[in-house]
């Protein structure tokens, strides 16, 4: 991966001037390259990784992973149903999978019932959906490459040769 992308992927909040210093290029060049990456659709957005388990006001958010078996359409294959599923705000990720099912989806809801209703009322009845299997996330240990465990303590001494 491009080194600018690597840096942004780890920390999207670095300023252009900081990025420039670290990459040995000018601030101006950083701005231009980011703009190009955005225009080319390579950078699609900037998210914040939130440890919902620790945040008081979203501690009861429930995440579920849903396996969807669908019958592909003659013309558009899996794309049409995947796009339809993507429309729902509750849906966070939609992936076409190899293996025993076709679409892998993650969704967020405020409680189990919420998600069950969504699957029963919104996903299952969609045309082409053959079956669903819902897995609830119990605990997250690592999210988007970031370790969510307690504060990491630097065990090295303060000063050493």
């Amino acid at each position: 991966m491009d080194s600018l992308l690597k840096l942004l992927k780890k920390n999207a909040r670095l300023s252009n001037s900081e990025l420039g210093v670290m990459l040995g290029i000018s601030e101006q060049e950083v701005a231009e390259r980011i703009e190009k990456l955005e225009n080319d659709g390579i950078i699609k957005g900037y998210n914040t990784v939130i440890n919902e388990q620790a945040a008081a006001d979203c501690g009861d958010l429930v995440t579920a992973y849903i396996e969807l078996k669908v019958s592909p359409k003659a013309q558009s294959g899996f794309d049409e149903i995947a796009r339809t599923v993507s429309q729902y705000d509750e849906v966070e990720n939609v992936w076409l999978m190899s293996g025993g099912y076709d679409l892998g989806i993650t969704i967020k809801g405020t409680n189990l019932m919420d998600i069950s209703l969504f699957v029963a009322q919104r996903l299952a009845p969609l045309e082409g959906v053959l079956s669903t299997a819902t897995h609830f996330v119990l605990k997250k240990y690592k999210d988007n490459g970031i370790d969510l465990s307690d504060k990491i303590i630097d065990e090295r001494g303060l000063v050493s040769p």
């Binding site: 630097d154 090295r156 001494g157 303060l158 000063v159 050493s160 040769p161």
Partner: peptide
């Protein structure tokens, strides 16, 4: 340094 609290260290060689 050991006698102080909340030290921001830039001292390690590892």
């Amino acid at each position: 340094a050991q006698t102080m609290e909340n030290v921001i260290a830039l001292g390690v060689g590892e």
